[in-house]
Design a protein around this nucleic acid. Structure first.
Lengths: 214, 214, 214, 214
DNA sequence: CATGAATGAGAATTCATTCAT
DNA sequence: GATGAATGAATTCTCATTCAT
């Protein structure tokens, strides 16, 4: 019910042996990209803006470190997933029953959103704009799909355990994801939004929606 | 709990009296824009692609009929809202109690999505990419906000009537919207997706989520 | 020392027999063109703006009545020259001696500018932007040159008559023209400018400049 | 009585530290722009033509080095003013009395025009077409106005010194400017024009016009 | 490694002109 | 005669990417 591990090895390296500087530069660029994407959106996040944010004086540096825009975006997603996984997974695994785990997942995501607003906003932007995009990034959508599949599996277990009611787990999983992403998206541009409160509300909402009808 | 009426008169024209051909061309271009936006997304929907889809030989034609990209997008939204309103509103108003009306709203939207997949996908794309966008299209976001406010009001009535439980109506409304939009988005690129079935599932889901806990 | 007559016949007619409506429409368009050119300048005076000003609903009308932009501009120049000639020539011919005639020319032009600000501004715009322009409008520059030549001849007579001193008449004529045009240009956008007063000052200036040194 | 100093620092850059190549390219593009503007005029001086003249393979290069058309034009004006200042100012300051200084100003400008025909033609084109233009370039017009004001002040001093007669210094300054610009404009397209001779004639002309009437 | 100059494709828009009605 | 829809060229500008230094 949370992000799969996406280890460093998946980063697809033109460069077999990444030096320390190399790694640092990449991280720096990815961090800048996350901020820029969160602020101006996926499509307006040009190399020029990202380079400027990263304190780089040339977009060429980005092209040097990444195999094109897609590669950079891949890394952005990977980075955020790494963060999200480290943040949310422990909170989920701290609970035994599925109801509590679901709540932990939803509230964990939105607590994370409150703590790192740009990260979740960025990944949402990227994944949203990937849908229907180039076939070159199919791997990405697949990865996302895999995560959802894991969550579906969790729900099925809860249903078999009689903890959840009878409903289509895919629809449920996507509805949860969509609701979370919606809050994330708004959080970026509505500073007054109480993200944690929204998280609790959503957790309540989906608690009722999943609960076995007596 | 549905789109406000946005009548033809609101289109307000450079052209005071729109000829039949004028109206036809505009409609044709809007239709092409809807298809292209649904297929490639808001940002990749260039005038070139839209013109090609509309069977036009140059992008200049679009600029001739519309006062720029924003004007075209406005019309796209207006057109879809007109369609959605005509389709969904009667289905809602056919019911008295709020539970049935909510179901009619959700299923109505997704039935419409099944019937006109591109229309809802297009408006979702436009509105999604407007969030945090140019200040020139604030009116748009406001309109959308007004629609949500109407729905919130409906929910409040249902709560006062004891038909719905106690929850934050804004969070609920946004979660519903997000869940519907998610299905709409996927419908465009997943031809096998059973949109109507998803609609029924979502209606069930939010029925449970809104129902007064006994 | 003033504009040559440019009769209607010079208008270069695709249309051998101009109907009344034809003539009226042309005049109406020319008048609109004069206003627009004076306001936004030669290059920004598009057919669209001119048509709008003329109360026409299509630029096609202009293309119908004129053989292209050049033809329209030709007519603008001819129209203004006709006006200027009728206004200035009598004031010049009312005097005998060349000094008074020169003053009448300068003050006459600027009085005209005060009375019809757009007309002189328009012709100045057109002629200025013609210099170095297409070879298709050479005839235009030639006509202008012919007017200056006439004025040069007047000066030569004055010099032979001992009324003017010894100087290059061409340089003088151009300096006068340039000074007048400069006031005309500024008059359009500086409403507070006292054009007549400037005319008197310029007349004084060139009076001193042409006077025989004792 | 001549252009104010417009030092390199005023160029203010997107690029804080301009490399040698950067500076070179900018200069090269400015030079090309000056030539093209002198030849085809301000409005027809498109990036395409300028790029071609500069030996560049795409207009994008110009956009890369300059913040748009206005920025390029600004640089064109600055460059010409720098040149003109270096050329004319010493010749003016070599003289004590105002009569000689005026002559030095006029002849200096036209000698410069003979030496660098395109430079003065270009600045004249730009400034002429700025009048009444975009509000974005108001600073430009203001600068020009400041220069004229300086010259007006010089004239006032000469009048108080009894060296010049009694006349409106503003009208005089503008007439001088207009006469010079007229010669400059013609010089570009009339190779046979003896610019220096015209300069001497104009100096004589305005010498008579400013001289105290005995 | 890093820079930044260079490239060329693609974007929206304006324009004069043509043409069917 | 008059309209306005259609065309295609031209314009400025942005962008990702390449490459010499």
């Amino acid at each position: 019910m949370q992000a799969k591990d996406s280890s460093t090895e998946q980063r697809a390296g033109r460069r077999s042996r990444a030096s320390f500087t190399e790694t640092g530069r990449r991280a720096q660029i990815v961090a800048a990209a996350i901020d820029v994407i969160a602020e101006v959106g996926y499509h307006r996040a040009s190399f020029a803006k990202i380079a400027e944010r990263a304190g780089l004086s040339s977009t060429g540096m980005i092209s040097y470190h990444f195999d094109g825009r897609d590669d950079l975006m891949r890394e952005v997603v990977a980075e955020v997933m790494r963060l999200a996984d480290g943040y949310v997974r422990p909170r989920i695994e701290a609970h035994e029953n599925y109801t509590a785990r679901l709540r932990a997942f939803i509230e964990g995501n939105l607590d994370l959103c409150a703590a790192f607003p740009n990260h979740l906003a960025a990944i949402t932007e990227v994944l949203t704009n990937l849908r229907g995009g180039d076939p070159t990034m199919v791997a990405f959508v697949d990865m996302n799909e895999a995560i959802l599949a894991t969550q579906v599996e969790q729900i099925r277990k809860a249903q078999r355990a009689g903890e959840f009611g009878d409903f289509d787990p895919w629809v449920m999983v996507r509805a949860i994801r969509a609701a979370i992403d919606d809050v994330v998206r708004r959080a970026t541009h509505e500073p007054d939004l109480d993200v944690r409160a929204a998280g609790r509300e959503l957790a309540d909402l989906f608690d009722r929606a999943t609960r076995r009808t007596s």
